[in-house]
Simulated assay, not measured.
Amino acid sequence: MTDTTLTIRRPDDWHVHFRDGDMLNAVAPHTARQFGRAIVMPNLVPPVTTIQAASDYRDRIMAAVGAEAGFTPLMTCYLTDTADADEIAQGFKQGVFSAVKFYPAGATTNSDSGVTNVKNVYPVFERMQEIGMPLLVHGEVTDPETDIFDREALYIEQVLTPILNDFPSLKVVMEHVTTKDAVDFVRSQADSGRLAATITAHHLVINRTDIFKGGIHPHLYCLPIAKRELHRLALREAATSGEAAFFLGTDTAPHARHAKESACGCAGIFTAPTAIETYANVFDEENALDKLEAFASLNGPAFYGMAASEETITLSKTTWTPEETIETAAGDPVRIFGGGEELAWKLVD
């Protein structure tokens, strides 16, 4: 590292949404340009619940990014009330499934097929515990009477704590944490090494006030929604701490602009084109650039039992302004997080 450049092992993104079709073809190359591997979320329509569906989706991703990208998509299985534990275990054994994603039904985009009662999938958790397969949780309760800003804290109390108590060897990732409550809870389990958390770029940058500054900004609406400033600061402290339980997961989630700017806009922020640069900005602001490699490139592989990349990337402290949007083949623009705004770090191709 110098004052103007930073070289780290090639990072991985442990939480991405690629969608499918034209959208997949437009967005996947942006992730592959920066990251060596990515955990791919299975909330398509219909959801990815079988080995064959995951294999086919992986093939479509590889066609979109090209073999020359040197990119590996890590596929996940969408957990439903009727999930087949044998199918999941076989997929893990074959190297098709890297993990299982647990969406509470109705929690976010394309989650209607998710789990309605956690006890319905306890037999699957038992099998996953036996074979060492990670469970990735969208950590929000979905009770309509619950304030949207309290959904994560209540999930820890009502759902996650019982899972950890009932399955003491199950490895769990709390995805895209947004609260100090989650940071503190993950740290409380640090000695076990079985609970980790991904942190997005956008939750390190925005708080809930930013969504409403000068009007409603639909492109800053995501689930879990951004919280108060004290929570954003807690996330920044955790991400830049170097602690093994916290690692990079962008939750990049593209939607066409018309789907965001509508009477009932979709949840999701598309960060893929500016992800590693945004993280670098944050770590620089926190005087923690020496911790970026651990967060982006080392902690995730270690938790998943994989080797860190032998490749490297270099970031340059160069002011630049990314494009505001990308377009799909259908001509639908997708708004880029940070697009049209100056960034202080840039990935060197």
Rank of each mutant, 00 (worst) to 15 (best):
D3Q: 14
T5M: 15
I8T: 01
R9T: 09
D20I: 15
A26V: 11
A28R: 01
R33D: 12
L44H: 09
P46G: 07
A53G: 11
D59Q: 14
D59F: 13
I61M: 04
G70A: 03
C77L: 13
T82K: 15
A83G: 06
E87S: 02
E87K: 05
Q90K: 12
F92Q: 00
K93D: 14
Y103S: 02
V115A: 01
Y122R: 03
V124Q: 03
E130C: 12
I131E: 02
L135W: 07
H138C: 01
G139D: 01
D143C: 07
T146G: 05
D147H: 10
I156V: 12
L164D: 08
L170Q: 00
V172P: 10
T178P: 09
T178G: 12
A182V: 03
A182W: 06
D184E: 11
R187S: 09
S188V: 05
D191G: 13
G193L: 10
T198V: 12
H202K: 06
H203L: 07
I206K: 00
D210A: 12
H217R: 13
L220I: 13
C222F: 08
L223V: 15
L223I: 15
I225G: 13
R232D: 11
R232S: 07
S241Y: 05
A245P: 13
F246V: 05
A253W: 07
P254A: 07
H255S: 04
R257P: 14
S262G: 09
C264E: 15
C264L: 15
G265H: 05
I276R: 00
E277R: 06
Y279L: 08
V282P: 13
L292G: 04
N299Y: 07
G305R: 10
K317F: 08
K317D: 10
E324P: 10
T328G: 07
G331A: 07
V334T: 06
R335W: 13
F337N: 06
W345Y: 03
